[in-house]
Design a protein around this nucleic acid. Structure first.
Ligand SMILES: [Zn+2]
Ligand SMILES: [Zn+2]
Ligand SMILES: [Zn+2]
Ligand SMILES: [Zn+2]
Lengths: 172, 172
DNA sequence: TATCATATGTTATAGCATAACAGGTCAAGC
DNA sequence: GCTTGACCTGTTATGCTATAACATATGATA
């Protein structure tokens, strides 16, 4: 049975929904709502460009290149030069509202803002979908390896490339 | 004096040595020797450019940008255009003799060729040093997270930024 | 020898990212 | 009110990273 009620609006953050067809409007709405509750307290200032940039990233479970975002912003009357997009994106990343996906030289909205940060990313090479999942056990394993050589970890990037459930078994 | 005996030529591969001062000539030699034993069997063809590229990467426990490698190659009489470096580097990466460090847009020699691949990388932001360590437990944790959403992992990137033992406690 | 695969080199271009500067807004303090 | 300073947005210009497309060489195969 489907659940009649959503006790956990954060489900999308676990990555389960990203690759399944789902009520993405609600998905996006949940994130924006969570951001709204964070904004004042955490010293986050969502100006028009930043908010719009976040909304653009939230349109799909994909990562977007900075220039792709820039095109969208420019088309909507914002600045048309690279720094406009990079500044907004960098701000979102620094404040935990977006992530940089290094393998793709691209950015994606954080699906779980405020929570467990330094997630693991799953990039589907079939459909370009992107899912984000909490990485606490991964982080622990990394810390163990770091401890063995006396290294102190500040930031961690974990990205995987593979096939989502939908793209498995269909050749490509 | 050189070490009298090396019971574990693979020690460097565990990352323990990378940040410590050590007999790096031996370190590099070990890797090259291991590569030599792999080359014929694994269908690896180390042409002059490729070999030289690998040697350049092996000069230090750092990652090098493609253009930095290119400058070196050009100065030694090889081609002077980007594809020369990129092709050699890509070949080394594809054959497990080097790694791409995405956070740095750079490349590093693999310190453990032939063994456990998809290691975890430790990047020291103090000295730019780079260490590579086996990532089996990390991989397991990632696979667990992937399994939970039905994602099938093909390649994994784990990079951390932090401070090596030598750079900790000295402000920078 | 003719053919094919592989490797190396070139020119040109695409894609990603930042430095440096200019003007605008707004609140705090005089 | 006016000034100051913090911050945001926009610009131009440039730098760094990476690949496409084409030309030539070499060596193994048939
Ligand atoms: Zn969604
Ligand atoms: Zn997919
Ligand atoms: Zn060494
Ligand atoms: Zn260091």
């Amino acid at each position: 049975m489907a659940s009649r009620k959503k006790p956990e609006p954060a489900t999308a953050g676990q990555g389960a929904l990203a690759f399944a067809s789902h009520d993405h409007a609600g998905c996006r709405g949940d994130v924006l709502a969570r951001v709204a509750t964070l904004s004042p307290g955490a010293g986050i200032r969502l100006t028009p460009v930043r908010r719009r940039t976040l909304e653009i990233l939230l349109e799909s479970h994909r990562a977007m290149g900075a220039y792709e975002v820039l095109d969208r912003l420019a088309a909507e009357g914002f600045g048309s030069q690279p720094p406009v997009a990079y500044r907004a994106l960098d701000y979102l990343v620094e404040h935990g509202l977006a992530h940089r996906i290094r393998r793709l030289n691209a950015f994606a909205a954080c699906m779980n803002p405020g929570d467990d940060h330094s997630p693991v990313f799953f990039i589907c090479k079939g459909c370009n979908g992107l899912a984000e999942a909490p990485a606490r056990p991964v982080r622990a394993a990394v810390e163990a390896a770091a401890g063995a050589i006396g290294f102190s970890v500040e930031r961690m990037t974990v990205e995987t490339l593979g096939l989502c459930p939908g793209c498995q078994g269909q050749g490509a």
